[in-house]
């Protein structure tokens, strides 16, 4: 299964599953990240660093720990 960590720059993905606790899910929801949303990877993880996403025109940085808990599917 692909997670946000192993997606290349500028790819569009659909979020399939967010594993991890209730709080993390809630925190992500607050920043506008939901299951089923389509996000663009602006900067992929580099040397274990965070991922930079664009969602509905906002940029959100996610550390590798969380990014690896978000399962996604690449679009085209």
């Amino acid at each position: 299964m692909k997670t946000l960590v192993n997606i290349n720059d500028r790819k569009k993905v659909k979020i399939l599953k967010i594993s991890g606790g209730h709080r993390i899910r809630q925190h992500l929801q607050c920043l506008g990240i939901h299951i089923g949303d389509i996000v663009t990877i602006k900067k992929s993880s580099f040397l274990g660093g965070p991922v930079l996403l664009e969602i509905n025109g906002c940029d959100v940085a996610l550390g590798k720990g969380i990014a690896s808990k978000i399962e996604v599917e690449e679009l085209e």
């Binding site: 925190h27 965070p50 906002c58 940029d59 959100v60 940085a61 550390g63 969380i66």
Partner: peptide, 10 residues
Amino acid sequence: TPGLIMEIPP
């Protein structure tokens, strides 16, 4: 802690 979850404002 889960790590970084942060909005990057323009």
